[in-house]
Lab assay of single mutants.
Amino acid sequence: ELELEEVDLYRMNSQDKLGLTVCYRTDDEDDIGIYISEIDPNSIAAKDGRIREGDRIIQINGIEVQNREEAVALLTSEENKNFSLLIARP
């Protein structure tokens, strides 16, 4: 049973970094989820404190993420200042 949490992050300008590194968990081929492998200690996500390494990203801004490229594109989008992440953890 996964616990879901919605985390809203806000950046003042497009130079601010959310600070999330995303990856696949390669140990299970059936698991195509996108996971947070690293959080930059000086980033918006780290200061917010709710997202943890190992969390799975389900949605970004209401869009279900299917692959790492999509997640990276959404997280690094210059147009977005508000990010709503739906994350899951066991």
Rank of each mutant, 00 (worst) to 15 (best):
I58W: 04
F83L: 07
P41A: 10
V72R: 09
R89G: 03
E70S: 10
T21S: 09
S14H: 14
L86G: 15
E64Y: 04
D8F: 03
A45R: 00
A71G: 05
C23H: 15
V72M: 14
Y24T: 11
I60S: 00
F83W: 06
R50D: 02
Y10D: 14
M12Y: 10
I44K: 02
E79R: 10
I32V: 15
R68E: 06
E5D: 11
L74M: 09
G54V: 00
E53V: 12
Q59M: 04
K17G: 11
F83T: 11
D31R: 13
R50A: 02
E3I: 15
D31W: 04
D48G: 05
L9V: 04
E6D: 06
I87M: 10
I51K: 00
E3A: 12
E70M: 11
D16S: 10
F83D: 02
D40Q: 13
D27H: 07
F83E: 02
L74D: 04
Y24M: 13
Q59L: 04
A46K: 13
D30E: 15
T76Q: 06
S84E: 09
I51W: 01
L74F: 10
S84L: 13
R50L: 02
D28Q: 08
L74V: 07
D8V: 14
D16Q: 09
G54W: 05
L75G: 01
E38R: 11
Q66F: 12
R68I: 09
L2D: 03
G33I: 07
V7F: 11
N80V: 05
K81W: 09
L9I: 08
I63E: 10
K47C: 12
K17P: 12
I58R: 14
R52S: 09
T21R: 09
R68T: 13
L20E: 00
L18M: 02
Q15Y: 09
G49I: 04
G33Q: 11
T26Q: 09
S14V: 12
Q66E: 14
V7L: 09
L86W: 03
G19Y: 00
E6P: 15
T21K: 06
I36E: 00
A88F: 11
P41N: 12
I39M: 11
E70V: 11
N82K: 10
D8Q: 02
L75P: 01
D48H: 06
S43L: 04
G49A: 10
N61G: 10
E70L: 05
K47F: 07
K47N: 11
I36F: 03
C23L: 12
D28L: 11
E29A: 12
R25V: 14
N82G: 04
T21C: 06
E69N: 04
N80F: 11
L4D: 02
S37T: 13
N13M: 04
Q66N: 14
V72A: 10
L9N: 01
Q15H: 09
F83S: 04
N61V: 00
D27N: 13
G19W: 00
R68K: 12
Y35E: 13
E5C: 09
N67W: 14
T26V: 11
I63F: 06
D40E: 12
P90R: 03
Q15F: 06
G49L: 04
L18G: 02
L85C: 03
G54C: 03
E6A: 14
G19R: 00
I60A: 02
L18W: 15
A46M: 10
I36Y: 00
L4R: 13
E69F: 06
S37D: 15
I63L: 09
A45V: 12
D28P: 11
A73Y: 10
D30A: 04
I44N: 05
G54N: 12
E79G: 07
R89Q: 05
P41Y: 14
I87D: 00
Q15V: 08
I87S: 02
K17M: 10
V22T: 11
I36M: 02
A88S: 14
N61E: 03
A73V: 06
S14T: 14
N13W: 05
A45N: 01
S77Q: 11
A45C: 06
T26D: 07
I63G: 05
N42P: 02
L86N: 09
I60V: 08
I34G: 04
L2I: 09
A88P: 03
V72C: 14
I63A: 09
P41I: 14
G62L: 02
E6M: 05
